[in-house]
Design a binder for these strands. Structure first.
Length: 568
RNA sequence: GUGCUUAUAGCUCAGCAGGAUAGAGCAGUCGCCUCCUAAGCGACCGAUGGGGGUUCGAGUCCCUCUAGGCACACCA
Protein backbone atom coordinates (compact mmCIF):
# COMPACT_ATOMS: atom_id res chain seq x y z
CA UNK A 1 0.00 0.00 0.00
CA UNK A 2 0.99 3.61 -0.39
CA UNK A 3 3.10 4.92 2.46
CA UNK A 4 1.74 8.44 2.80
CA UNK A 5 4.02 9.32 5.65
CA UNK A 6 7.08 8.41 3.65
CA UNK A 7 5.81 10.31 0.64
CA UNK A 8 5.40 13.42 2.75
CA UNK A 9 8.78 13.01 4.43
CA UNK A 10 10.37 12.74 1.02
CA UNK A 11 8.86 15.94 -0.28
CA UNK A 12 9.82 17.83 2.86
CA UNK A 13 13.33 16.48 2.59
CA UNK A 14 13.54 17.88 -0.91
CA UNK A 15 12.42 21.30 0.27
CA UNK A 16 14.85 21.56 3.17
CA UNK A 17 18.11 19.73 3.55
CA UNK A 18 17.33 17.28 6.28
CA UNK A 19 17.51 13.53 6.24
CA UNK A 20 14.31 11.92 5.04
CA UNK A 21 14.39 9.12 7.59
CA UNK A 22 14.78 11.62 10.41
CA UNK A 23 11.92 13.72 9.11
CA UNK A 24 9.71 10.70 8.98
CA UNK A 25 9.97 10.26 12.72
CA UNK A 26 8.86 13.87 13.26
CA UNK A 27 5.69 13.53 11.25
CA UNK A 28 2.67 12.91 13.38
CA UNK A 29 -1.02 12.29 13.05
CA UNK A 30 -3.07 15.20 14.38
CA UNK A 31 -5.68 14.42 16.98
CA UNK A 32 -8.10 16.81 15.41
CA UNK A 33 -8.85 15.80 11.82
CA UNK A 34 -9.41 19.47 10.95
CA UNK A 35 -5.65 19.76 11.15
CA UNK A 36 -5.18 17.35 8.31
CA UNK A 37 -4.14 13.75 8.04
CA UNK A 38 -0.46 14.25 8.77
CA UNK A 39 1.36 17.14 10.38
CA UNK A 40 4.90 18.32 10.53
CA UNK A 41 5.81 20.45 13.57
CA UNK A 42 8.54 22.92 12.70
CA UNK A 43 9.51 23.93 16.23
CA UNK A 44 12.54 21.75 16.54
CA UNK A 45 14.04 23.29 13.42
CA UNK A 46 13.77 26.79 14.83
CA UNK A 47 17.10 26.81 16.63
CA UNK A 48 19.00 25.24 13.81
CA UNK A 49 17.56 27.50 11.12
CA UNK A 50 17.38 30.54 13.40
CA UNK A 51 13.86 31.35 12.33
CA UNK A 52 10.45 31.36 13.95
CA UNK A 53 8.52 28.11 13.46
CA UNK A 54 5.63 29.68 11.50
CA UNK A 55 8.17 31.20 9.11
CA UNK A 56 9.81 27.83 8.61
CA UNK A 57 6.45 26.30 7.94
CA UNK A 58 5.76 28.98 5.36
CA UNK A 59 9.14 28.52 3.73
CA UNK A 60 8.64 24.81 3.41
CA UNK A 61 5.19 25.34 2.06
CA UNK A 62 6.49 27.69 -0.61
CA UNK A 63 9.31 25.40 -1.67
CA UNK A 64 7.71 22.03 -1.33
CA UNK A 65 6.71 20.13 -4.41
CA UNK A 66 3.81 17.95 -3.51
CA UNK A 67 2.55 15.17 -5.65
CA UNK A 68 -1.06 16.15 -6.13
CA UNK A 69 -1.90 12.58 -6.87
CA UNK A 70 -1.44 11.82 -3.19
CA UNK A 71 -1.69 15.10 -1.36
CA UNK A 72 -4.67 17.36 -1.75
CA UNK A 73 -3.25 20.39 0.00
CA UNK A 74 -0.75 21.67 2.50
CA UNK A 75 -1.59 24.35 5.04
CA UNK A 76 0.33 26.33 7.59
CA UNK A 77 -1.18 26.49 11.06
CA UNK A 78 1.10 28.28 13.49
CA UNK A 79 4.29 26.29 13.64
CA UNK A 80 2.68 23.32 12.01
CA UNK A 81 2.53 22.24 8.44
CA UNK A 82 -0.64 20.26 7.89
CA UNK A 83 -1.00 17.78 5.05
CA UNK A 84 -4.36 16.74 3.67
CA UNK A 85 -4.17 13.59 1.64
CA UNK A 86 -6.30 12.77 -1.39
CA UNK A 87 -9.05 10.84 0.26
CA UNK A 88 -10.18 9.03 -2.87
CA UNK A 89 -6.65 7.73 -3.43
CA UNK A 90 -6.55 6.31 0.05
CA UNK A 91 -9.98 4.76 -0.36
CA UNK A 92 -8.92 3.12 -3.59
CA UNK A 93 -5.64 1.95 -2.15
CA UNK A 94 -7.21 0.44 0.95
CA UNK A 95 -10.17 -1.23 -0.71
CA UNK A 96 -8.08 -2.71 -3.51
CA UNK A 97 -5.79 -4.19 -0.93
CA UNK A 98 -8.81 -5.67 0.82
CA UNK A 99 -9.94 -7.14 -2.49
CA UNK A 100 -6.55 -8.58 -3.40
CA UNK A 101 -5.39 -9.88 -0.06
CA UNK A 102 -7.45 -12.72 1.30
CA UNK A 103 -5.68 -12.29 4.63
CA UNK A 104 -5.56 -8.53 4.91
CA UNK A 105 -2.67 -7.18 6.93
CA UNK A 106 -0.74 -10.42 6.72
CA UNK A 107 2.89 -9.82 6.18
CA UNK A 108 6.29 -11.32 5.58
CA UNK A 109 8.24 -8.95 7.76
CA UNK A 110 9.00 -11.74 10.18
CA UNK A 111 10.18 -14.17 7.55
CA UNK A 112 13.13 -16.24 8.65
CA UNK A 113 12.82 -15.21 12.29
CA UNK A 114 12.03 -17.65 15.05
CA UNK A 115 9.98 -16.43 17.97
CA UNK A 116 9.27 -18.48 21.07
CA UNK A 117 6.36 -17.47 23.22
CA UNK A 118 6.18 -19.14 26.58
CA UNK A 119 2.81 -18.67 28.20
CA UNK A 120 0.15 -20.07 30.49
CA UNK A 121 2.48 -22.52 32.26
CA UNK A 122 0.08 -23.58 34.99
CA UNK A 123 1.19 -25.62 37.94
CA UNK A 124 0.06 -29.20 37.88
CA UNK A 125 -2.39 -30.13 40.60
CA UNK A 126 -3.57 -26.59 41.13
CA UNK A 127 -6.78 -25.12 39.78
CA UNK A 128 -6.82 -22.64 36.97
CA UNK A 129 -8.01 -19.33 38.34
CA UNK A 130 -8.34 -15.90 36.80
CA UNK A 131 -4.77 -15.11 37.76
CA UNK A 132 -3.74 -17.46 34.94
CA UNK A 133 -5.95 -15.77 32.42
CA UNK A 134 -3.55 -13.00 31.54
CA UNK A 135 -0.52 -15.10 30.75
CA UNK A 136 -2.67 -17.51 28.78
CA UNK A 137 -4.45 -14.92 26.69
CA UNK A 138 -1.63 -12.42 26.29
CA UNK A 139 0.65 -15.22 25.15
CA UNK A 140 -1.96 -16.65 22.86
CA UNK A 141 -2.57 -13.38 21.08
CA UNK A 142 1.14 -12.54 20.78
CA UNK A 143 1.61 -15.99 19.33
CA UNK A 144 -1.10 -15.45 16.75
CA UNK A 145 0.04 -11.96 15.83
CA UNK A 146 3.69 -12.89 15.36
CA UNK A 147 2.59 -15.75 13.20
CA UNK A 148 0.39 -13.50 11.10
CA UNK A 149 3.32 -11.21 10.51
CA UNK A 150 5.28 -14.05 9.04
CA UNK A 151 7.43 -15.07 11.99
CA UNK A 152 8.04 -18.71 12.64
CA UNK A 153 6.41 -18.89 16.02
CA UNK A 154 6.63 -21.56 18.69
CA UNK A 155 4.12 -21.54 21.53
CA UNK A 156 5.37 -23.31 24.61
CA UNK A 157 3.41 -24.28 27.66
CA UNK A 158 6.17 -24.57 30.21
CA UNK A 159 4.19 -26.65 32.63
CA UNK A 160 4.95 -26.36 36.31
CA UNK A 161 5.30 -30.07 36.68
CA UNK A 162 8.38 -30.38 38.83
CA UNK A 163 9.85 -29.21 42.05
CA UNK A 164 9.39 -29.48 45.78
CA UNK A 165 5.66 -28.93 45.43
CA UNK A 166 5.48 -32.46 44.05
CA UNK A 167 7.43 -33.74 46.98
CA UNK A 168 4.67 -32.17 49.01
CA UNK A 169 1.92 -33.69 46.92
CA UNK A 170 3.50 -37.11 47.19
CA UNK A 171 3.76 -36.74 50.94
CA UNK A 172 0.14 -35.65 51.14
CA UNK A 173 -0.96 -38.61 49.08
CA UNK A 174 1.01 -40.96 51.27
CA UNK A 175 -0.66 -39.57 54.36
CA UNK A 176 -4.24 -39.04 53.21
CA UNK A 177 -4.55 -40.72 49.81
CA UNK A 178 -7.36 -43.03 50.88
CA UNK A 179 -9.56 -40.15 51.95
CA UNK A 180 -9.90 -38.80 48.43
CA UNK A 181 -11.66 -40.18 45.39
CA UNK A 182 -9.68 -38.72 42.54
CA UNK A 183 -12.01 -40.00 39.83
CA UNK A 184 -14.35 -37.08 40.42
CA UNK A 185 -13.28 -33.42 40.41
CA UNK A 186 -9.62 -34.31 40.85
CA UNK A 187 -8.11 -30.83 40.70
CA UNK A 188 -9.99 -29.49 43.66
CA UNK A 189 -9.15 -32.55 45.67
CA UNK A 190 -5.50 -32.31 44.82
CA UNK A 191 -5.70 -28.68 45.72
CA UNK A 192 -7.25 -29.53 49.03
CA UNK A 193 -4.44 -31.94 49.75
CA UNK A 194 -1.90 -29.33 48.75
CA UNK A 195 -3.34 -26.77 51.13
CA UNK A 196 -3.37 -29.31 53.94
CA UNK A 197 0.21 -30.37 53.44
CA UNK A 198 1.38 -26.79 53.25
CA UNK A 199 -0.22 -25.99 56.55
CA UNK A 200 1.38 -28.99 58.08
CA UNK A 201 4.78 -28.08 56.66
CA UNK A 202 4.59 -24.70 58.29
CA UNK A 203 3.94 -26.26 61.65
CA UNK A 204 6.27 -29.21 61.36
CA UNK A 205 9.73 -28.87 59.92
CA UNK A 206 10.06 -32.67 59.78
CA UNK A 207 7.21 -32.96 57.32
CA UNK A 208 8.79 -30.34 55.10
CA UNK A 209 12.01 -32.31 55.20
CA UNK A 210 10.14 -35.45 54.11
CA UNK A 211 8.65 -33.49 51.21
CA UNK A 212 12.06 -32.35 50.05
CA UNK A 213 13.22 -35.93 50.31
CA UNK A 214 10.30 -37.06 48.14
CA UNK A 215 11.33 -34.60 45.49
CA UNK A 216 14.87 -35.86 45.68
CA UNK A 217 13.54 -39.38 45.16
CA UNK A 218 11.48 -38.21 42.23
CA UNK A 219 14.58 -36.75 40.64
CA UNK A 220 16.34 -40.04 41.31
CA UNK A 221 13.54 -41.78 39.37
CA UNK A 222 12.07 -43.64 42.30
CA UNK A 223 9.26 -45.68 40.74
CA UNK A 224 6.61 -44.99 43.36
CA UNK A 225 7.19 -41.27 43.19
CA UNK A 226 7.35 -41.19 39.40
CA UNK A 227 4.08 -43.11 39.04
CA UNK A 228 2.30 -40.87 41.44
CA UNK A 229 3.67 -37.79 39.75
CA UNK A 230 2.44 -39.05 36.37
CA UNK A 231 -0.97 -39.63 37.81
CA UNK A 232 -1.23 -36.08 39.12
CA UNK A 233 -0.03 -34.76 35.83
CA UNK A 234 -2.51 -36.68 33.71
CA UNK A 235 -5.44 -35.70 35.88
CA UNK A 236 -4.46 -32.06 35.66
CA UNK A 237 -3.92 -32.01 31.93
CA UNK A 238 -7.41 -33.27 31.28
CA UNK A 239 -8.80 -30.31 33.19
CA UNK A 240 -6.44 -27.77 31.64
CA UNK A 241 -7.22 -28.94 28.14
CA UNK A 242 -10.91 -28.36 28.71
CA UNK A 243 -10.16 -24.72 29.48
CA UNK A 244 -7.73 -24.31 26.58
CA UNK A 245 -10.32 -25.80 24.31
CA UNK A 246 -13.01 -23.33 25.28
CA UNK A 247 -10.63 -20.39 25.18
CA UNK A 248 -9.29 -21.48 21.83
CA UNK A 249 -5.71 -21.55 23.05
CA UNK A 250 -3.11 -23.77 21.45
CA UNK A 251 0.51 -24.68 21.99
CA UNK A 252 3.18 -26.29 19.87
CA UNK A 253 4.98 -27.75 22.82
CA UNK A 254 4.09 -28.85 26.32
CA UNK A 255 7.65 -29.38 27.45
CA UNK A 256 7.48 -28.30 31.04
CA UNK A 257 10.03 -28.21 33.78
CA UNK A 258 10.30 -31.96 34.12
CA UNK A 259 11.49 -32.22 30.53
CA UNK A 260 14.71 -30.59 31.62
CA UNK A 261 15.33 -33.01 34.47
CA UNK A 262 18.15 -34.70 32.59
CA UNK A 263 19.52 -31.52 31.02
CA UNK A 264 20.53 -29.69 34.13
CA UNK A 265 23.94 -31.25 34.69
CA UNK A 266 25.07 -29.56 31.53
CA UNK A 267 24.14 -26.20 33.01
CA UNK A 268 26.11 -26.85 36.16
CA UNK A 269 29.09 -28.17 34.21
CA UNK A 270 29.20 -25.25 31.87
CA UNK A 271 28.95 -22.71 34.66
CA UNK A 272 31.71 -24.58 36.40
CA UNK A 273 33.88 -24.51 33.28
CA UNK A 274 33.41 -20.80 33.02
CA UNK A 275 34.52 -20.54 36.60
CA UNK A 276 31.46 -18.66 37.76
CA UNK A 277 30.00 -21.35 39.96
CA UNK A 278 30.50 -20.56 43.62
CA UNK A 279 29.54 -22.24 46.84
CA UNK A 280 27.66 -20.42 49.50
CA UNK A 281 26.03 -21.94 52.55
CA UNK A 282 26.17 -25.32 50.87
CA UNK A 283 24.32 -24.19 47.76
CA UNK A 284 25.82 -23.54 44.34
CA UNK A 285 25.31 -20.00 43.17
CA UNK A 286 26.28 -17.57 40.44
CA UNK A 287 27.24 -14.14 41.63
CA UNK A 288 25.70 -11.31 39.63
CA UNK A 289 26.96 -8.20 41.35
CA UNK A 290 28.97 -7.33 38.21
CA UNK A 291 25.70 -6.53 36.43
CA UNK A 292 24.21 -4.75 39.41
CA UNK A 293 22.12 -7.59 40.77
CA UNK A 294 22.79 -8.04 44.46
CA UNK A 295 20.98 -11.33 44.88
CA UNK A 296 22.94 -14.25 43.47
CA UNK A 297 21.22 -16.89 41.42
CA UNK A 298 21.00 -20.28 43.13
CA UNK A 299 21.43 -23.09 40.66
CA UNK A 300 21.71 -25.99 43.04
CA UNK A 301 20.26 -26.39 46.49
CA UNK A 302 22.34 -27.39 49.48
CA UNK A 303 20.86 -30.89 49.39
CA UNK A 304 22.03 -31.27 45.80
CA UNK A 305 18.66 -31.11 44.13
CA UNK A 306 17.77 -28.76 41.34
CA UNK A 307 15.83 -25.56 41.54
CA UNK A 308 13.58 -23.78 39.06
CA UNK A 309 16.39 -21.54 37.86
CA UNK A 310 18.40 -24.58 36.82
CA UNK A 311 15.49 -25.83 34.76
CA UNK A 312 14.87 -22.48 33.13
CA UNK A 313 18.54 -22.21 32.27
CA UNK A 314 18.51 -25.69 30.80
CA UNK A 315 15.45 -24.62 28.82
CA UNK A 316 17.29 -21.61 27.42
CA UNK A 317 20.14 -23.83 26.23
CA UNK A 318 17.76 -26.37 24.79
CA UNK A 319 15.68 -23.75 23.02
CA UNK A 320 18.69 -21.99 21.58
CA UNK A 321 19.89 -25.29 20.14
CA UNK A 322 16.50 -26.59 19.04
CA UNK A 323 14.79 -23.46 17.75
CA UNK A 324 17.63 -21.03 17.10
CA UNK A 325 15.35 -18.35 18.44
CA UNK A 326 15.58 -14.65 17.65
CA UNK A 327 13.29 -13.85 20.51
CA UNK A 328 12.15 -15.88 23.44
CA UNK A 329 9.28 -14.23 25.27
CA UNK A 330 8.28 -15.17 28.80
CA UNK A 331 4.75 -14.09 29.56
CA UNK A 332 4.97 -14.16 33.32
CA UNK A 333 3.67 -11.87 36.06
CA UNK A 334 5.89 -9.07 37.35
CA UNK A 335 6.46 -10.69 40.70
CA UNK A 336 9.20 -12.56 38.89
CA UNK A 337 10.97 -9.49 37.51
CA UNK A 338 14.07 -9.99 39.57
CA UNK A 339 14.14 -13.68 38.88
CA UNK A 340 14.17 -13.18 35.13
CA UNK A 341 16.86 -10.57 35.41
CA UNK A 342 18.89 -13.15 37.24
CA UNK A 343 18.51 -16.02 34.83
CA UNK A 344 19.01 -13.76 31.82
CA UNK A 345 22.21 -12.60 33.44
CA UNK A 346 23.35 -16.17 34.04
CA UNK A 347 22.41 -17.10 30.49
CA UNK A 348 25.32 -15.08 29.13
CA UNK A 349 27.61 -17.85 30.42
CA UNK A 350 25.61 -20.54 28.66
CA UNK A 351 24.53 -19.39 25.20
CA UNK A 352 25.69 -17.04 22.46
CA UNK A 353 25.06 -13.35 22.79
CA UNK A 354 22.44 -13.49 20.07
CA UNK A 355 20.23 -15.63 22.27
CA UNK A 356 20.84 -13.64 25.41
CA UNK A 357 19.66 -10.56 23.57
CA UNK A 358 16.53 -12.35 22.45
CA UNK A 359 15.39 -13.20 25.96
CA UNK A 360 12.56 -10.99 27.04
CA UNK A 361 10.27 -11.02 30.03
CA UNK A 362 6.79 -9.84 29.08
CA UNK A 363 5.80 -8.88 32.53
CA UNK A 364 2.19 -8.29 33.39
CA UNK A 365 0.38 -6.96 36.44
CA UNK A 366 -1.50 -8.90 39.05
CA UNK A 367 -5.20 -9.59 39.03
CA UNK A 368 -6.87 -8.60 42.26
CA UNK A 369 -10.41 -8.74 43.51
CA UNK A 370 -12.20 -5.57 44.66
CA UNK A 371 -11.80 -6.94 48.16
CA UNK A 372 -8.06 -7.33 47.72
CA UNK A 373 -5.68 -10.09 46.80
CA UNK A 374 -6.82 -13.51 45.76
CA UNK A 375 -5.63 -16.28 47.94
CA UNK A 376 -6.08 -19.95 47.26
CA UNK A 377 -5.68 -20.69 50.93
CA UNK A 378 -8.45 -18.31 51.92
CA UNK A 379 -10.60 -19.72 49.16
CA UNK A 380 -11.38 -16.35 47.59
CA UNK A 381 -10.22 -17.14 44.09
CA UNK A 382 -12.38 -16.89 41.01
CA UNK A 383 -11.92 -20.03 39.01
CA UNK A 384 -11.74 -19.70 35.26
CA UNK A 385 -14.30 -22.40 34.85
CA UNK A 386 -16.82 -20.46 36.93
CA UNK A 387 -16.08 -17.27 35.06
CA UNK A 388 -16.58 -18.97 31.71
CA UNK A 389 -19.82 -20.59 32.79
CA UNK A 390 -21.22 -17.35 34.18
CA UNK A 391 -20.41 -15.25 31.14
CA UNK A 392 -21.81 -17.83 28.75
CA UNK A 393 -24.94 -18.08 30.85
CA UNK A 394 -25.33 -14.32 30.83
CA UNK A 395 -24.81 -14.23 27.08
CA UNK A 396 -27.51 -16.82 26.66
CA UNK A 397 -29.98 -14.81 28.72
CA UNK A 398 -29.37 -11.76 26.58
CA UNK A 399 -29.78 -13.74 23.38
CA UNK A 400 -33.08 -15.16 24.56
CA UNK A 401 -34.23 -11.66 25.40
CA UNK A 402 -33.00 -9.89 22.27
CA UNK A 403 -33.01 -12.49 19.58
CA UNK A 404 -35.29 -15.37 20.55
CA UNK A 405 -35.42 -16.66 16.97
CA UNK A 406 -31.68 -17.21 16.77
CA UNK A 407 -30.54 -20.70 15.91
CA UNK A 408 -27.56 -22.32 17.63
CA UNK A 409 -27.95 -20.13 20.70
CA UNK A 410 -25.48 -22.29 22.63
CA UNK A 411 -22.72 -21.82 20.15
CA UNK A 412 -23.25 -18.08 19.89
CA UNK A 413 -23.47 -17.71 23.65
CA UNK A 414 -20.16 -19.48 23.96
CA UNK A 415 -18.46 -17.19 21.47
CA UNK A 416 -19.93 -14.08 23.06
CA UNK A 417 -19.17 -15.13 26.62
CA UNK A 418 -15.61 -16.09 25.81
CA UNK A 419 -15.23 -12.97 23.67
CA UNK A 420 -16.18 -10.87 26.66
CA UNK A 421 -13.58 -12.56 28.82
CA UNK A 422 -10.82 -12.33 26.25
CA UNK A 423 -11.47 -8.68 25.51
CA UNK A 424 -11.68 -7.87 29.18
CA UNK A 425 -8.34 -9.48 29.83
CA UNK A 426 -6.57 -7.98 26.85
CA UNK A 427 -7.99 -4.48 26.88
CA UNK A 428 -5.63 -2.94 29.37
CA UNK A 429 -1.89 -2.36 29.36
CA UNK A 430 -0.15 -5.55 30.41
CA UNK A 431 2.07 -4.08 33.08
CA UNK A 432 -0.74 -2.62 35.14
CA UNK A 433 -2.60 -4.45 37.85
CA UNK A 434 -6.15 -5.36 37.05
CA UNK A 435 -9.11 -5.45 39.31
CA UNK A 436 -11.50 -8.20 38.51
CA UNK A 437 -15.10 -7.57 39.29
CA UNK A 438 -18.13 -9.44 38.20
CA UNK A 439 -20.08 -6.39 37.05
CA UNK A 440 -17.41 -5.49 34.52
CA UNK A 441 -16.92 -9.08 33.43
CA UNK A 442 -20.62 -9.55 32.80
CA UNK A 443 -21.18 -6.21 31.16
CA UNK A 444 -21.67 -6.57 27.42
CA UNK A 445 -22.18 -2.91 26.61
CA UNK A 446 -19.76 -0.24 25.60
CA UNK A 447 -16.11 -1.13 25.08
CA UNK A 448 -16.39 -4.87 25.31
CA UNK A 449 -15.82 -7.99 23.28
CA UNK A 450 -19.52 -8.37 22.49
CA UNK A 451 -19.56 -4.81 21.14
CA UNK A 452 -16.93 -5.76 18.59
CA UNK A 453 -18.83 -8.92 17.76
CA UNK A 454 -22.11 -7.07 17.52
CA UNK A 455 -20.63 -4.59 15.09
CA UNK A 456 -19.29 -7.44 13.01
CA UNK A 457 -22.69 -9.14 13.03
CA UNK A 458 -24.21 -5.91 11.75
CA UNK A 459 -21.82 -5.87 8.82
CA UNK A 460 -22.78 -9.46 8.04
CA UNK A 461 -26.43 -8.62 8.30
CA UNK A 462 -26.14 -5.74 5.88
CA UNK A 463 -24.21 -7.86 3.41
CA UNK A 464 -26.82 -10.55 3.66
CA UNK A 465 -29.60 -8.06 2.96
CA UNK A 466 -27.66 -6.63 0.07
CA UNK A 467 -27.27 -10.11 -1.31
CA UNK A 468 -23.97 -9.40 -3.01
CA UNK A 469 -20.53 -7.97 -2.61
CA UNK A 470 -19.65 -5.76 -5.55
CA UNK A 471 -16.56 -6.44 -7.60
CA UNK A 472 -13.83 -3.99 -6.70
CA UNK A 473 -13.90 -2.69 -10.28
CA UNK A 474 -17.51 -1.64 -9.80
CA UNK A 475 -16.80 0.51 -6.79
CA UNK A 476 -16.69 4.25 -7.35
CA UNK A 477 -14.38 5.42 -4.60
CA UNK A 478 -15.60 9.00 -4.65
CA UNK A 479 -18.70 7.90 -2.84
CA UNK A 480 -16.74 7.37 0.34
CA UNK A 481 -15.48 10.85 1.04
CA UNK A 482 -17.68 11.73 4.00
CA UNK A 483 -16.24 11.97 7.49
CA UNK A 484 -17.49 8.63 8.81
CA UNK A 485 -16.34 6.65 5.76
CA UNK A 486 -13.02 8.39 5.95
CA UNK A 487 -12.53 7.36 9.56
CA UNK A 488 -13.17 3.72 8.71
CA UNK A 489 -10.80 3.81 5.78
CA UNK A 490 -8.05 5.42 7.80
CA UNK A 491 -8.31 2.79 10.47
CA UNK A 492 -8.26 -0.05 7.98
CA UNK A 493 -5.22 1.57 6.43
CA UNK A 494 -3.50 1.43 9.82
CA UNK A 495 -4.24 -2.21 10.56
CA UNK A 496 -0.90 -3.74 9.68
CA UNK A 497 0.91 -0.93 11.38
CA UNK A 498 -1.11 -1.67 14.51
CA UNK A 499 -0.03 -5.30 14.45
CA UNK A 500 3.59 -4.28 14.11
CA UNK A 501 3.21 -1.99 17.09
CA UNK A 502 1.85 -4.88 19.12
CA UNK A 503 5.02 -6.87 18.46
CA UNK A 504 7.28 -3.91 19.10
CA UNK A 505 5.81 -3.37 22.51
CA UNK A 506 4.60 -6.90 23.26
CA UNK A 507 1.29 -5.28 23.96
CA UNK A 508 -1.91 -6.91 22.63
CA UNK A 509 -4.03 -4.17 24.19
CA UNK A 510 -3.02 -1.97 21.27
CA UNK A 511 -4.97 -4.28 18.99
CA UNK A 512 -7.89 -4.47 21.42
CA UNK A 513 -8.22 -0.71 21.40
CA UNK A 514 -7.84 -0.59 17.67
CA UNK A 515 -10.76 -2.96 17.20
CA UNK A 516 -12.95 -0.87 19.46
CA UNK A 517 -12.02 2.21 17.46
CA UNK A 518 -12.85 0.47 14.22
CA UNK A 519 -16.15 -0.82 15.57
CA UNK A 520 -17.03 2.67 16.76
CA UNK A 521 -16.08 4.19 13.43
CA UNK A 522 -18.29 1.73 11.65
CA UNK A 523 -21.20 2.32 14.04
CA UNK A 524 -20.96 6.00 13.24
CA UNK A 525 -20.86 5.29 9.55
CA UNK A 526 -23.80 2.93 9.88
CA UNK A 527 -25.82 5.47 11.79
CA UNK A 528 -25.12 8.36 9.48
CA UNK A 529 -25.45 6.57 6.17
CA UNK A 530 -28.07 4.31 4.82
CA UNK A 531 -26.10 1.58 3.11
CA UNK A 532 -28.76 -0.05 0.97
CA UNK A 533 -30.05 2.78 -1.21
CA UNK A 534 -31.48 3.49 -4.64
CA UNK A 535 -28.32 4.89 -6.12
CA UNK A 536 -26.34 1.84 -7.23
CA UNK A 537 -22.98 3.59 -7.15
CA UNK A 538 -23.47 4.82 -3.63
CA UNK A 539 -24.72 1.44 -2.51
CA UNK A 540 -21.83 -0.43 -4.09
CA UNK A 541 -19.31 1.77 -2.38
CA UNK A 542 -20.98 1.54 1.01
CA UNK A 543 -21.52 -2.19 0.78
CA UNK A 544 -17.88 -2.62 -0.07
CA UNK A 545 -16.77 -0.55 2.87
CA UNK A 546 -19.05 -2.61 5.09
CA UNK A 547 -17.45 -5.76 3.73
CA UNK A 548 -13.98 -4.36 4.34
CA UNK A 549 -14.71 -3.37 7.94
CA UNK A 550 -16.23 -6.75 8.68
CA UNK A 551 -13.21 -8.49 7.27
CA UNK A 552 -10.74 -6.51 9.35
CA UNK A 553 -12.82 -6.86 12.50
CA UNK A 554 -12.89 -10.60 12.09
CA UNK A 555 -9.19 -10.97 11.37
CA UNK A 556 -8.28 -8.65 14.22
CA UNK A 557 -10.57 -10.35 16.70
CA UNK A 558 -9.18 -13.74 15.76
CA UNK A 559 -5.69 -12.48 16.41
CA UNK A 560 -6.79 -11.74 19.96
CA UNK A 561 -8.42 -15.14 20.25
CA UNK A 562 -11.97 -13.90 19.86
CA UNK A 563 -14.28 -15.83 17.55
CA UNK A 564 -16.97 -14.03 15.61
CA UNK A 565 -20.54 -15.27 15.38
CA UNK A 566 -22.39 -14.53 12.14
CA UNK A 567 -25.53 -13.60 14.00
CA UNK A 568 -26.23 -12.76 17.60
C1' G B 1 15.90 -0.86 54.56
C1' U B 2 17.24 -1.56 49.07
C1' G B 3 15.54 -2.27 44.08
C1' C B 4 11.57 -2.36 40.50
C1' U B 5 6.80 -0.52 39.42
C1' U B 6 2.03 2.22 39.40
C1' A B 7 -0.74 7.06 40.22
C1' U B 8 -5.18 10.66 34.46
C1' A B 9 -13.19 12.09 35.53
C1' G B 10 -17.22 8.98 41.11
C1' C B 11 -15.46 3.84 38.86
C1' U B 12 -12.49 1.08 34.78
C1' C B 13 -9.08 2.58 31.27
C1' A B 14 -6.67 5.46 26.40
C1' G B 15 -3.16 9.08 25.28
C1' C B 16 0.39 7.37 18.86
C1' A B 17 8.53 7.18 22.25
C1' G B 18 7.71 15.57 24.18
C1' G B 19 3.43 18.63 20.25
C1' A B 20 -2.23 21.89 18.62
C1' U B 21 -8.44 22.45 22.88
C1' A B 22 -6.12 15.47 27.59
C1' G B 23 -9.92 11.02 24.73
C1' A B 24 -13.31 6.67 25.66
C1' G B 25 -16.44 3.17 28.36
C1' C B 26 -19.25 2.32 32.94
C1' A B 27 -22.35 4.78 36.52
C1' G B 28 -26.00 9.29 36.56
C1' U B 29 -29.49 12.77 33.66
C1' C B 30 -31.85 13.50 28.86
C1' G B 31 -32.96 12.48 23.58
C1' C B 32 -33.23 8.82 19.14
C1' C B 33 -36.36 2.30 16.73
C1' U B 34 -43.37 3.36 10.77
C1' C B 35 -35.83 3.19 8.58
C1' C B 36 -29.93 -2.14 6.93
C1' U B 37 -29.99 -6.01 14.58
C1' A B 38 -31.19 -0.20 20.24
C1' A B 39 -25.56 -5.64 22.76
C1' G B 40 -26.50 0.63 18.92
C1' C B 41 -26.20 6.28 18.17
C1' G B 42 -26.24 11.39 20.11
C1' A B 43 -26.14 15.15 24.20
C1' C B 44 -25.02 16.73 29.30
C1' C B 45 -21.92 15.92 33.73
C1' G B 46 -16.87 15.37 35.09
C1' A B 47 -9.80 14.59 35.36
C1' U B 48 -3.44 14.73 34.77
C1' G B 49 -1.52 12.67 43.41
C1' G B 50 1.73 17.32 45.77
C1' G B 51 6.11 20.38 44.83
C1' G B 52 10.39 21.68 41.94
C1' G B 53 13.25 21.37 37.20
C1' U B 54 14.64 20.63 31.70
C1' U B 55 12.16 22.57 27.07
C1' C B 56 9.59 27.11 22.33
C1' G B 57 6.08 23.18 24.36
C1' A B 58 5.41 18.12 29.74
C1' G B 59 0.04 13.45 31.25
C1' U B 60 4.65 11.89 28.72
C1' C B 61 11.66 13.28 30.44
C1' C B 62 14.70 14.47 35.36
C1' C B 63 14.66 15.37 40.89
C1' U B 64 11.78 15.16 45.30
C1' C B 65 7.61 14.15 48.43
C1' U B 66 3.08 11.22 49.21
C1' A B 67 0.18 6.81 48.53
C1' G B 68 -0.45 1.72 46.59
C1' G B 69 1.71 -2.91 44.53
C1' C B 70 5.79 -6.45 43.77
C1' A B 71 10.52 -8.49 44.81
C1' C B 72 14.89 -9.06 47.78
C1' A B 73 19.22 -17.12 48.58
C1' C B 74 17.82 -22.83 48.67
C1' C B 75 9.14 -22.10 46.76
C1' A B 76 7.77 -21.60 41.34
Amino acid sequence: MIDFKKTIAKSIAEAIKIDEKELETYIEIPKDTNNGDYAFPCFRLAKELKKAPPMIANDIKNNIKIDEKFIEKVEVAGGYLNFYIQQSVMVKDVLEEIANQEEYGKSEIGKGKNIIVEYSAPNIAKPFHIGHLRTTLIGNSLYRIYKYLGYHTIGINHLGDYGTQFGKMIEAYKMWGEEYDLSVDPINKLMDMYVRINELCKKDENVLERCRENFRLLEAKDQYCVDLWNKFKDLSMVEFNKIYDILNVKFDSYKGESFYADKMDEVIEKLNEKGVLKESEGAKIVDLTDVGIDTPCIVQKANGSSIYATRDLAAIMYRAKTYDFDKCLYVVAYEQNLYFKQIFAVARYLVDEKYVKGLEHVSYGMVNLPTGKMSTRLGNVVKIEDLINETIEKAKEIIIEKNPELKNKEEVAKKVGVGAIVYNTLSTTTIKDQIFDWDTALNFQGETGPYIQYTYVRTKSVLEKAGYIPKIGEVKFDNLLDETSKNCIKLIYNFENTLVQVTEKEEPSILSRYLIDLAKAFSNFYNDNKILVEDKDVQNARVYLTYAVGKVLKIGANLLGIEMPDKM
